[in-house]
Design a protein around this nucleic acid. Sequence first.
DNA 1: TATTGTTATACTCTATAACTATA
DNA 2: TATAGTTATAGAGTATAACAATA
Lengths: 170, 170
Amino acid sequence: MDGNSRARTSSDATDTGGGGEVDFMALLPRLARLGTALNRGDLVERAMEAAGSGLDRPALNVLVQLRMAGAPLRVGEIAHRMQVVGPHVTRQVNELERRLLVRRVVDPDDQRARLIEPTPEGTACAERYLKAVFGFFDRALAGWSAEDRRALGSFLGRFTDDLIAHLAAE
Amino acid sequence: MDGNSRARTSSDATDTGGGGEVDFMALLPRLARLGTALNRGDLVERAMEAAGSGLDRPALNVLVQLRMAGAPLRVGEIAHRMQVVGPHVTRQVNELERRLLVRRVVDPDDQRARLIEPTPEGTACAERYLKAVFGFFDRALAGWSAEDRRALGSFLGRFTDDLIAHLAAE
DNA sequence: TATTGTTATACTCTATAACTATA
DNA sequence: TATAGTTATAGAGTATAACAATA
């Protein structure tokens, strides 16, 4: 507690209509909080320290995308996965290349494109970051039974997939 | 489909260790995507159009916080709920006050503090926004059974609460 | 003529520092 | 002297526009 006047965790106000079986009104602020933690919050901050490279968030994110892909990626593909535009990625790659954390290789299939390939240190850096994030999730769910963890993974996966599919469709 | 070379939904690369019963490696990008959709993505963009006030995101967010609280809030309390610092909120409130969407009222309990109180149009604006967001969630989960919806709400609430508690604790 | 990537520039969101007024 | 809020300034993150090279 921080001494501030904050108590009401779920919906303080009357309903706005909408949700029936799921109390979105109560869920929305928590999802927002989660999103913030994952994008610019405490969690990411500490994981970046664990990565220990002095990189800023977007540059580190590029390394993480490459590590999760497990293979060199094009600039456009990285941009797509990060949900940003191309020029943004180009600048991060410039910085990463300067620090010898990635290399640019001309795509043999298409001379216009470049494949971004992490160096061993680039990969190691992403792994330190991911280890810190996963470690956090593991500790946060320490009190959960194995079955509940499985169910969470299943529901959460289905939920995000449906949401993402619907975003693309609507 | 957008014709791009994107197929692998779950982890492309070998495991980094960590998670046992939950595949965090597969979940992380989806949570990131969800967080982006909720913070600066397509979903929020369309909901802002629905609100139809010409406000930018942070200003609209202030109105949403007030609507969800269902009562006037102090500047500091709004900042806390939005996970931002005070001066940021002050500027949004300046803009909202100029547009007659909120009023500043001196807190009777403490002459230093101001209570931010939405006008009827300010409240209506937040409600149009929330209705659009909730409507989207409802449609995205149209294929879910009532029981699965309940389970989702339960797991998701518990998950975010544990994560947030752990963030505060660690 | 369409596509991949780069460079240069501008905009949005949020933080820090310095200050005012009340407690 | 501590706290609530404001003003002014600075920084991080991302987008748009104009361009080059290849397809």
